[in-house]
Design a protein around this nucleic acid. Structure first.
Length: 463
RNA sequence: UGCCGCAUAGCUCAGCGGUAGAGCAGCUGACUGUUAAUCAGCGGGUCCUAGGUUCGAAUCCUAGUGCGGCAGCCA
């Protein structure tokens, strides 16, 4: 048995009269006395193939066993459909049940299920319309991301997933150790001293490949990473995961302006690719998940993102007349409610806020000439908030050392990072984009746990 | 982690102190073209767990567990 080459996606484009064989899973079956209809899906596209069965030509027991969820191999002739709903359908000449799905146990019904319930059966949810569409868009978007960077001469680099430098400061980290064992249902440490552990020092799952990415950009010029990222924060929100996929481009000889330009171009490119290549799926999201999403996406592709300095953003917020739960003033971090007001009410499209106070941003962000702000930028989008966080990096050795000291970090731990500023230093910039947040934006899905096949968050590592 | 809400049939929910309910799914049957097919009939319950109040608790109270929403942390 070879891998499938004739997908339903292609069959739907073929001409009536063609003989085809399709393989897939039954979504629903509708039976009358002499005729039965099956909606068959192989996940290749949003549309199911309608199989038409003349009941008199098949064993009664065979037809009886066909139920929602079972896998079939169907041979037949493609015919023009006499009824509304589909152009062509498959008139079956031979049906093989590859795997049955006992109807009393199969948890998926033809009627809609809640996303909460589907999370409990995450191993089956990709068979539904919504999760089929999410997975196809996720795949196409990932492909578009690689293509975007490849077309622009960026090198795809892989930064370590296990890291011994707790330099990033981007969040709580998961320890990686082989000293930990479970005995009688309890954790036990085999070695208490980190020096005797596997890496001979504390090691963690990466929270960002940025610092390593910078080293690679300072030699390869333009690079990007695209890989799993881990945060051990106890965050219980619809926008956070403990394991997510992050894209992090890093560009040598580039400043914040170039960084913002790339971020804009990047988001528009991926969305346009999805619009061009997943139109059926996006139409579904537009109809059933987030009415208006199609128009929003088209608008995003065709209009520039608004650029607003942090200082201006504060002015807008102060003069907004809105009552915010968190009072806003220059120097305060923008809270969700502020970001949402800016991008949803004030601007009404993606907005890039830049030049934040240095006190609320990371040490590696380049200090501006005003000595008060750093060259950081966040891309905020309606309904989701921050989708990209980026900055121009501090390339001046003395300033970087000063910033490390200001934030009470250990200078020695950054020896290799500081080396970059000693040997052939160069202005450079980059950003991080959460793939899942981008998928949420494209699909209109409201919970990040529903845009990744198997989500990881506090109290959940099932499957 | 904080605040709020929810937990009843396979699923979605109603019932809110007095014998456990509906729709869908399932089962049986009817129907030659359905589109979440339709129509008739049938079966289906540890009302999350542990305490408490009460003559009596799915219902009220306490604790726990799980889930969700919002906030925080960020991507």
């Amino acid at each position: 048995m070879h891998y499938v080459k004739q997908y339903i996606k292609n069959v739907l484009q073929q001409e009536p009269g063609d003989t085809v064989t399709v393989k897939g899973w039954v979504k629903t079956k509708r039976a009358s006395k002499g005729i039965q209809f099956i909606q068959l899906s192989d996940g290749s596209c949003f549309t199911d193939l309608q199989i038409v069965i003349d009941a008199s030509k098949f064993e009664e027991n065979l037809l009886k066993e066909i139920s929602t969820g079972c896998s079939l191999l169907v041979e037949g002739t493609l015919v023009e459909s006499p009824a509304a709903g589909q152009k062509v359908e498959l008139s079956a000449t031979d049906i093989e049940i590859v795997g049955s799905a006992p109807v009393e146990d199969y948890p998926l019904q033809k009627k809609g299920a809640t996303f909460e319930f589907l999370r409990e059966i995450a191993h089956l949810r990709c068979r539904t319309n919504t999760f089929g569409a999410v997975n196809r868009i996720r795949s196409k978007a990932s492909w578009a991301i690689h293509q975007f960077f490849n077309e622009r001469g960026f090198h795809y680099v892989n930064t370590p997933i296990i890291t011994a430098s707790d330099c990033e400061g981007a969040g709580e980290m998961f320890y990686v150790s082989n000293s930990l064992a479970v005995e009688n249902g309890e954790y036990k440490l085999k070695n208490k001293n980190p020096q005797e552990d596997f890496f001979a020092k504390p090691a963690y799952l990466t929270v960002s490949g940025q610092l390593e990415g910078e080293t690679l950009a300072c030699g390869l010029t333009n690079v990007y990473t695209f890989g799993p990222t881990f945060r051990a924060e106890n965050s219980n929100s619809a926008r956070h995961l403990a394991e997510f996929w992050m894209i992090e481009p890093e560009m040598a000889f580039c400043n914040l302006e170039g960084d913002m330009a790339l971020a804009t171009e990047f988001i528009q490119y991926v969305i346009k690719y999805a619009l061009d290549n997943c139109s059926d799926d996006i139409e579904f999201f537009n109809k059933r998940i987030e009415p208006g999403i199609l128009e929003t996406l088209e608008h995003v592709v065709n209009s520039d993102f608004e650029h607003v300095s942090y200082t201006d953003a504060i002015k807008y917020l102060e003069n907004s007349g809105e009552k915010f739960e968190y009072p806003i003033h220059w120097g305060a971090d923008l809270q969700s409610e502020h970001e949402r007001w800016l991008t949803e009410k004030k601007i009404g499209k993606p907005v890039i806020v830049y030049n934040y106070p240095k006190e609320i941003k990371a040490f590696y962000m380049r200090l501006n000439d005003d000595n008060k702000t750093v060259a950081a930028m966040d891309v905020l989008v309606p309904k989701i908030g921050e989708i990209i966080g980026g900055s121009q990096r501090e390339e001046r050795h003395n300033v970087l050392v000063q910033r490390i000291k200001e934030q009470n970090l250990e200078e020695e731990a950054y020896w290799w990072y500081l080396d970059l500023r000693k040997f052939g230093t160069v202005p450079h910039a980059g950003f991080g984009l959460g793939l899942e947040r981008l998928i949420m934006y494209i699909t209109g899905m409201k919970n990040i746990r529903d845009v990744i096949p198997y989500y990881r968050c506090p109290r959940n590592a099932d499957f």
